[in-house]
């Protein structure tokens, strides 16, 4: 039942230190595949399975750093998988990814030994950020330095440099740049940016996103021959290095 998801277009990013293993247990195949694919693009080694029983067997037999676990699974309920794993002293960090939204569901999940809880539908950037947090808690040092061409951003120290020159950004500009870098070479719509940087979507339009992208352009692109932030007409923005 398991399969090793793989990508052809893109080789895993070189990641300093040891290999990081992630298991995705999700019965919705399309969803499982796109999650796995995205994680692989970030340089993680990902296994995927589609039911609770397989998930339990895999997680018990191999040491994964992080388990991304759905709750409503065929053959074995996600909550039961989690309890059994914890009873057998499996230490992997577990992130529950589910559409069950009530407070009781969250509490139950965390009580059963989950380390984080993310509600569907979610943004990939948020899933990635949470996975990184879980890895850091485990002592696995994920790559904190992100790089696009000669632009560097350190998530930990919050330093931004371009061509070796320090750039000062406000908190919102920093969040915006981090989001763009995390999604490098991917188009981000204005609404997606608004939701992830400001935490909500503006009913009155996404004008504020344009304003902040302009601030960011002034800070990181002005005075450099190569522009990194591009507008995709009618869609949104993209940070590209090619």
């Amino acid at each position: 039942m398991t399969k090793k998801a793989h990508t052809e277009e893109k080789a895993p990013l070189p990641r300093p230190g040891r290999e990081v293993f992630i298991l995705v247990v999700e019965d919705e195949r399309h969803l499982a595949d796109s999650v796995a694919r995205r994680l692989q693009e970030e340089g993680y080694t990902v296994d995927v399975c589609h039911d609770g029983e397989d998930g339990y067997q895999l997680a018990s037999s191999k040491k994964y750093h992080v388990l991304i676990l759905d709750l409503l699974l065929p053959r074995k309920d996600g909550m039961q998988v989690l309890r059994d794993l914890r009873r057998n002293k499996v230490q992997s960090m577990v992130l529950i990814l589910t559409a069950k939204s009530t407070v009781e569901d969250r509490v139950d999940g965390l009580r059963a030994g989950a380390d984080d809880y993310l509600l569907k539908p979610f943004a990939f950037a948020e899933l990635l950020a949470r996975v990184e947090t879980l890895l850091r808690r485990q002592g696995v040092e994920p790559k904190t330095l992100m790089q696009v061409a000669d632009l560097e951003l350190d998530v930990e120290s919050r330093n931004v440099r371009r061509a070796g020159r320090n750039i000062h950004l406000t908190a919102k500009e920093f969040m915006l740049l981090e989001l763009l870098m995390r999604n490098k070479n991917r188009i981000l719509t204005r609404r997606a940016i608004a939701e992830q940087v400001w935490g909500y979507t503006f009913d009155t339009g996404t004008n504020v996103v344009d304003v902040y992208v302009n601030y960011l352009r002034k800070a990181i692109d002005e005075g450099f021959p190569k522009r990194l932030v591009h507008t995709v007409r009618g869609v949104g923005f993209i940070l590209k290095d090619e």
Binding site: H30, L31, S34, R38, K120, R186, L188
Partner: peptide, 25 residues
């Protein structure tokens, strides 16, 4: 709770699929 679950699940697939599609590659 059930209704939101039933609506969230297809929405999640749509959202993640579309996010994937926005990858320039």
């Amino acid at each position: 709770g059930d209704a939101s679950h039933e609506l969230r699940t297809p929405l999640t697939v749509i959202r993640t699929q579309l996010e994937t599609a926005l990858n320039s590659k």
